[in-house]
Amino acid sequence: MTVLGAVALPQLPPEDLAAVGNAAEDSGLDELWLWEDCFWGGGIAAAATVLARTERIRVGIGVLPVPLRNVALTAMEVAALLRMHPGRILPGFGHGVQEWMTQIGAGVESPMTLLREQLSALRALLNGETVTTEGRYVRLDNVALDFAPTAPAPILAAAGGPRTLRLSGELADGTILTSRTAPQGVRAARLLIEEGRVKAGRTEPHRVTVYLAAATGPDAAARLAATARRNGFQEGAGIAGTPDAIAEAVRRYAAAGADTVVLEPTDDDPDLAGFVRFVGEKVRPLLD
Rank of each mutant, 00 (worst) to 15 (best):
R229N: 07
L272D: 01
T150Q: 15
R88S: 05
E195L: 06
M1R: 09
R190Y: 00
L126Q: 05
L90C: 10
N231M: 11
L51V: 09
F278D: 04
G217A: 08
G241P: 03
T102M: 04
L125N: 06
R136T: 15
D26W: 01
T260L: 05
G257K: 14
S27I: 05
P183K: 11
G87L: 02
A18R: 15
A172N: 09
G274H: 10
A228K: 14
F93Q: 09
V276H: 04
R252D: 12
R252S: 12
P91G: 12
V7A: 02
L68M: 14
G274D: 07
G105L: 03
R53K: 11
R202C: 03
A72L: 07
G105N: 09
G217H: 13
V131C: 06
L156T: 08
Y211Q: 10
R223M: 06
A220K: 11
M101L: 05
G238N: 11
R223P: 04
E77L: 13
D267V: 02
R197G: 04
V71Y: 07
S168Q: 02
T178P: 01
A148R: 14
I246P: 01
T130W: 02
A45T: 13
N127V: 00
R207N: 07
R187M: 14
N142Q: 15
Y211S: 03
M84V: 06
S110Q: 06
L68H: 15
R223K: 14
V210L: 02
R284G: 02
R230I: 00
L12R: 12
L17V: 03
A225F: 07
A52C: 04
Q98A: 13
V59Y: 06
P65V: 11
T49E: 14
V208E: 02
V138E: 09
E31V: 13
L90W: 07
V186K: 13
F93G: 05
N70W: 01
T175Q: 04
D268Q: 14
V208W: 03
A47Y: 09
G43I: 03
A254M: 00
I89Q: 03
K199I: 05
A245G: 10
R139A: 08
W35F: 13
L286G: 01
L263G: 07
A75N: 05
D141F: 04
P91H: 13
V198A: 13
L192F: 00
L119I: 14
G21F: 09
L287I: 01
E129W: 03
M76C: 10
Y137F: 15
L140G: 04
Y137A: 08
S179M: 05
V63H: 08
N70H: 15
T175I: 00
L90V: 14
T175F: 00
A237I: 14
L17G: 01
V50S: 04
N142M: 07
E77A: 15
P86Q: 08
R69H: 14
A188K: 15
Y253S: 04
V138F: 12
L9E: 09
P218S: 09
V59K: 04
R252T: 14
M76E: 15
I246K: 03
R83E: 14
V276I: 11
T209W: 06
P111L: 03
